[in-house]
C-alpha cells in the first residue's frame, strides 16, 4: 500500500465530532454525502481542497470521542489515503482498521501543511518529498495490513471466512 499526496495538518485531540459533526452523522447513511462535511468545523474548505490520495496529518489523540464508525468512513470517502498522527484514540484506531482506513503513528512535527509525502504503509516509510527527508515509523503488524488491504474487516471476512494472515 503506497500513497502519494499532500499533507493537511491539524492539531491535537481532533475528536470524532470535528471529523464529522453530529449535525450530519445521524441524518444520512450516504457516506459520500457525509464525506463532503469531513473536518468542516475545523476547516470549512477542507473537502474542496483535498485531492485523491492526500493525507490528514494531526497531533496526539486523533479520533477521540464517540465510537461510531462514521468518522473513519467519512474520511475514507473523502478520498484521503491515510491518517498520520502522533497517537490515536483507541476505539477510533480499531474502527480505522475495521473499516479499511490506513493509519500511521509518527512524529508529525516533521511535516508541515502542504508538504508532499510518499507513504509506504507496508514497509513503514514516510518520505517527506518537500523537505527531502524520511520519517521513521513502526510498520503496522502484518495481519493489520492484510485487513486494510482487503478493505476492512467485513471484506476480509467475506473473502476468507475468518481471520486469515497467510
Amino acid at each position: 500500500m503506497e500513497f502519494k499526496g499532500i499533507a493537511h495538518k491539524f492539531g491535537d485531540d481532533v475528536n470524532t465530532d470535528y471529523i464529522i459533526s453530529g449535525r450530519y452523522k445521524f441524518k444520512t447513511l450516504d457516506m459520500k454525502e457525509l464525506a463532503r462535511h469531513v473536518m468542516e468545523d475545523l476547516d470549512p474548505d477542507f473537502y474542496s481542497k483535498v485531492n485523491k490520495g492526500d493525507f490528514i496529518v494531526a497531533g496526539k489523540n486523533f479520533g477521540c470521542g464517540s465510537s461510531r464508525e462514521q468518522a473513519p468512513l467519512a474520511i475514507l470517502n473523502a478520498d484521503i489515503s491515510a491518517v498520520l498522527a502522533k497517537s490515536f484514540a483507541r476505539i477510533f484506531y480499531r474502527n480505522c482498521i475495521n473499516t479499511g482506513l490506513a493509519l500511521i503513528e509518527c512524529d508529525t512535527d516533521q511535516i508541515n501543511e502542504g508538504d508532499e509525502l510518499e507513504v509506504d504503509v507496508e514497509k513503514g516509510v514516510i518520505r517527506n518529498l518537500t523537505q527531502q527527508r524520511d520519517i521513521p515509523v513502526k510498520p503496522l503488524p502484518r495481519f493489520m495490513l492484510k485487513i486494510l488491504s482487503d478493505g476492512g474487516l467485513v471484506e476480509h471476512f467475506k473473502k476468507h471466512g475468518t481471520f486469515n494472515f497467510d
Binding site: 465510537s67 464508525e69 483507541r90 484506531y93 480499531r94 474487516l153 471476512f157 475468518t162
Partner: peptide
C-alpha cells in the same frame, strides 16, 4: 467492550485482534 463489526468477527471466528 467492542463494536458490532468486531462482535460479528468474534462470533464467526472465535478470534479478535487486540492492542
Amino acid at each position: 467492550g467492542v463494536g458490532s463489526t468486531d462482535l460479528a468477527a468474534g462470533m464467526m471466528s472465535g478470534k479478535l485482534w487486540f492492542k
